[in-house]
Design a protein around this nucleic acid. Structure first.
Length: 419
RNA sequence: GUGGCCGUAGCUCAGUAGGCAGAGCGCGCGGCUGUGGCCCGCGAUGUCGAGGGUUCGAGCCCCUUCGGUCACCCCA
């Protein structure tokens, strides 16, 4: 028996109302903030991600689906959205549009990982990018959009976490200080941190282990925001003022770092307050060097992405109800050969008039047909048999009130439409 | 990639000491003439995840493997 490949899942009809709910909110909030929809290819030149996300990152090193196509090109299924959008910005000369260019996407992404709660090999993100403006007010706009989105979904108990990790000027200075601190404490931290020290120094800061002195070493570590150069410092302070002005409950976390190489200055996440793995539902930041890295003019940018699966997980945890439409407004039960033809024709007429209608499974007893309607929670039943045919009428039954009346066949479509 | 737990009907699960594969829900049909939900009766559906081994005999014991789940790593 075939199964969906590991880490993939069928989104069954029962779950579709959640997806529709989230997609609708995302489209509305994008529109309200003036972010235009963009769709980019599912696969890109593999090198795009090496250049943008970073060669040494886990995403590129071990999580991308990369393969050679029949023409010999190295292709990667997209593992994230920002790189493709920035490539499109450069390729289509969006630099000549009024800046910043505000873009939104909602697509599926692919990472080869061990699946677990809130993590899949094929997953979906709604994300936005504002490209072409370095001002901190744009960071604030993007954060406001993300926060509003989460609020509009009805999700409560969320926290915005904020940090600044500097830029090309000041980050090396900070990293040097951090490296010095860890070099002096390397004997006390966990094996993972020792590995991070070599491989991806910033990540030591979000080590959660308590069986070594990691937490203590983190507490004493130098803070990125204390090593910012003058322009980054100003940007950071402005962003804080904006966020305060927006009234978004915010926590500065000096240990918030992001796993992708292209981030500069602002980084942020929105997390549910209860602890749990894979809890972050929205994350983003500024990437002022990325467009240039991809061959464009030096152009700043800022954006975020949200995980739809994680959002739906939280909607369910918080018992947020979403509207799920009934299958049919009316179903037609019929008895006998002649009534069968009449039922099929009437169903077609009703659909033509814009009413969702179906004929109950034929060849069954009236009881079976009625049961089927009940099971599908059909609010209205039409019954056609020999008696009705003879009188050129039908029986219309209100399934919720258990009342019924006889309606002339000639009037039935307008009668149903006006229910 | 590492570790814990788990794989039996569509779903949730039971299965004793190794001895005929089960329940509830759901689904289908019926409960005297053409009326659903509640109730009652009847019924169908299994590669017991897969492969191998031990045994007269394996859902149960052993090995391997695949998958699910949770956590780590990392990330949305």
């Amino acid at each position: 028996m075939y199964k969906a490949p590991r880490g993939t899942t069928d989104i069954l009809p029962a779950d579709q109302p959640y997806w529709r709910y989230v997609q609708t909110k995302a489209a509305k909030i994008s529109q309200r903030f003036g972010y235009s929809r963009i769709d980019t290819p599912v696969f890109e030149d593999a090198n795009l991600y090496v250049r943008s996300v970073g060669e040494g990152t886990d995403i590129v090193e071990k999580e991308t689906y990369t393969f050679k196509d029949k023409g010999g090109d190295m292709i990667s299924l997209r593992p994230e959205g920002t790189a493709g959008v920035c490539r499109a910005y450069v390729e289509h000369g969006m630099v000549s549009l009024p800046q910043p260019v505000r873009l939104a996407y909602m697509e599926s992404f692919f990472r080869y990982e061990r699946p677990q709660a809130g993590r899949f090999r094929q997953f979906h993100q709604f994300g936005v990018e504002a490209i072409g403006d370095a001002d901190a007010s744009i960071d604030a706009e993007v954060i406001d959009l993300g926060w509003r989105f989460i609020q509009d979904l009805g999700l409560g108990n969320m926290t915005l976490v904020l940090n600044s990790i500097g830029d090309k000027e000041c980050r090396p200075v900070y990293l040097k200080a951090l490296r010095g601190h860890y070099a002096a404490n390397l004997g006390r931290v966990c094996p993972d941190c020792k590995m991070r020290f070599e491989k991806n120094l910033l990540r030591v800061l979000d080590c959660k282990r308590t069986d070594f002195a990691c937490q203590e070493v983190i507490n004493d570590a130098p803070k990125a925001t204390e090593h910012l150069c003058a322009p980054c410092k100003e940007h950071w302070e402005q962003l804080n003022s904006y966020i305060n002005a927006l009234g978004i409950p915010m926590v500065i976390n000096h240990n918030l770092v992001r796993g992708l190489d292209y981030y500069t200055r602002s980084v942020f996440e929105i997390q549910p307050q209860e602890e749990g793995a894979q809890s972050t539902i929205l994350a983003g930041g500024r990437y002022d060097g990325l467009i240039e890295e991809l061959g464009g003019k030096p152009t700043p940018g800022v954006g975020f992405a949200t995980g739809i699966e994680r959002i739906i997980l939280n909607l369910k945890r918080q018992n947020i109800s979403v509207e799920s439409p009934r299958t049919y407004k009316v179903m037609i039960a019929h008895l006998g050969k002649a009534a069968d033809l009449e039922a099929v024709a009437l169903a077609s007429e009703l659909r033509k008039a814009g009413v969702s209608a179906a004929v109950a499974s034929g060849g069954k007893s009236l009881k079976a047909q009625m049961r089927q309607m009940s099971a599908l929670e059909t609010p209205t039943a039409i019954i056609i048999g020999d008696n009705e045919l003879a009188q050129k009428s039908v029986v219309v039954r209100d399934m919720t009130k258990a009342t019924q009346q006889t309606i002339p066949m000639a009037d039935i479509v307008s009668f149903i439409k006006n229910l």
